[in-house]
């Protein structure tokens, strides 16, 4: 379990990193926190010719409000998300999600940009940025472009990034008044990849959803923004409507079978999460009881 030999370059600036990526193309891998990349290399599942280490690029680190947009640098570590007052105030969903990401040792090294660029369909942060309607900022040889989170994830470990681009930041719109969040996942053990998970952002007024974004994960090849949520917006939610929406949800899902769960189990768990989420967001515990005894 030793990585095959590889070259290593420590980027001195974003420009320098982009130059290196331009030279090496898909023979290079960007090293951020290394929490997924290094195990894959040690298992020889990946053997890049060169690692471009962006770990020293302070310009990519940090959390700041810019107007009503929260900007999170790509190198911001999970532990920083967990502890940041700006995150707690403006995007508590990220904080809640990160506490489910692996374990402290991994959260101390792993970065939000690395997690999003890795695009594991069972990981938490991709679903969060989809639910938060965030924008991914990428920089390439020809400049910067902004990609909606909903357009960013293309499949298992696949994103809209091209090999010569670097993910530099995440922009999260902050809604403020009335917005509320929900995060929960079912994992075999705390810190494991989810069997099914849900990151949600809602705007609730007078007991109704005026907005509801449900980002499911581990239910397909990428995070899923559930269209079924639309059935509950500006509607009076009752068990019948909830059941109808849950049925619509299962039709949207295309879950994989793996060692933790069959596709049927994932569908089932997604509907349980869905009901529990809606009940929690509306503070109506009675909506949780959906399964006939």
């Amino acid at each position: 379990m030793k990585a095959a030999a590889f070259a290593y370059a420590r980027a001195t600036s974003v420009v320098n990193a982009l130059e290196l990526l331009a030279v090496h193309g898909d023979k290079a891998k960007v090293l951020s926190g290394g929490q997924s990349l290094m195990p894959a290399m040690n298992l020889r599942l990946l053997s890049p010719e060169i690692l471009v280490d962006i770990g020293g690029l302070a310009e990519l680190r940090g959390i700041a409000m810019r107007g009503d947009v929260l900007v999170v640098g790509a190198l911001t570590r999970h532990v920083d998300l967990l502890r940041s007052p700006e995150i707690a105030l403006n995007a508590p969903l990220l904080r809640d999600a990160v506490s489910h990401v692996a374990h402290p040792a991994i959260r101390n090294r792993g970065t939000i940009g690395g997690s999003l660029a890795h695009a594991d369909p069972a990981s938490e942060l991709p679903a969060c940025v989809v639910a938060l309607d965030a924008t991914i900022v990428a920089r390439g040889p020809t400049g910067e472009r902004r990609i909606a989170a909903t357009e960013f994830f293309k499949g298992i470990y696949e994103t809209a990034l091209s090999p010569d681009e670097l993910l530099v930041a995440i922009e999260v719109p902050v809604i403020g008044q009335g917005s509320t969040f929900f995060f929960q996942e079912y994992a075999r053990r705390h810190g494991d990849y989810a069997v099914v998970g849900l990151a949600a952002r809602a705007v609730v007024a007078a007991g109704r959803f005026s907005d509801l974004r449900l980002g499911f994960f581990a239910v397909g090849d990428r995070p899923l923004l559930a269209a079924a949520a639309g059935k509950l917006i500006n509607a009076s939610v009752n068990p019948g409507l909830l059941a109808e929406a849950a049925t619509a949800l299962t039709n949207e899902l295309d879950p994989q079978e793996d060692q933790q769960a069959t596709a049927a189990m994932r569908r089932h768990l997604a509907t349980v999460l869905f009901r529990r989420c809606v009940a929690a967001l509306l503070a109506r515990p009675e909506l949780e009881m959906g399964v006939a005894k």
Binding site: L43, R188, R189, H190, G191, D192
Partner: peptide, 28 residues
């Protein structure tokens, strides 16, 4: 609750790593 060496019908051990073979951890 957790541990199992999962073999397929061809005799391949399919979870020979610490991510897929679940040892009990303190949190649980």
């Amino acid at each position: 609750l957790f541990e199992k060496c999962i073999y397929d019908e061809r005799g391949q051990l399919t979870n020979a790593n610490m991510a897929d073979y679940l040892v009990p951890m303190s949190g649980e």
